[in-house]
Simulated scan of single mutants.
Amino acid sequence: MANHKSALKRIRRNEAVRLRNRYQHKTTRNAIKKLRGEEDKKAAEALLPNVVGMIDKLAKRKIIHANKAANLKSKLVKKVAAL
């Protein structure tokens, strides 16, 4: 167990960050699923910028890899264009 004040604080901080990252990642995954399930082109086009922004934010904070973010965005844009 950690004995130093700074180590105890780091443990608390890591847990808070982990929970925040998990929440943001899950929220983004749900938004992606919603966009993929959308049948109406106008509704999908309205959702796309928000979802892309969420993906970019995850990549910027290194929650997901930059290449994964690029692949996700590419596939979503293709899907919306094909509707």
Rank of each mutant, 00 (worst) to 15 (best):
K41W: 00
R20K: 06
A81V: 09
A16P: 00
A7H: 01
L47M: 15
R13P: 00
E38C: 13
N67K: 13
T28Q: 01
A59H: 02
K42L: 12
K26I: 10
Y23W: 10
G37N: 09
E38N: 05
A7C: 03
N14K: 10
S6N: 13
N21C: 05
K68L: 15
N30S: 14
A44E: 07
A66R: 14
L35C: 05
R20T: 08
K9D: 13
L8Y: 00
E45G: 06
R29H: 06
R61A: 06
R10E: 15
A7S: 13
A70Q: 11
M54L: 08
K5P: 06
R29P: 00
R61Y: 06
R12W: 04
A16M: 14
I64Y: 02
L48A: 07
L47A: 11
K68P: 00
R22M: 10
V52M: 06
K33N: 13
L19V: 06
S74E: 12
K68A: 15
K9E: 15
N30E: 15
L8Q: 10
A2Q: 07
E45F: 07
D40Y: 01
K42R: 13
A7E: 06
I63P: 00
L35K: 10
A2K: 07
H25I: 04
V52L: 14
N21S: 08
K60H: 05
E39F: 07
K34I: 05
R20E: 12
A82N: 06
A31N: 06
D56A: 03
K5W: 09
K26G: 01
E39N: 11
I63F: 01
M54F: 01
K73G: 04
K60C: 00
I55M: 03
K34F: 07
N3F: 09
N21W: 01
T27A: 15
I11H: 05
V80G: 07
A59S: 13
L35P: 13
E15G: 08
Y23N: 09
T27Q: 14
H65S: 12
H25M: 10
G37L: 03
R10N: 09
E15V: 11
L47G: 01
K57E: 15
L58T: 06
Q24H: 08
I63Q: 01
H65Q: 13
V17N: 09
K75L: 08
N67A: 10
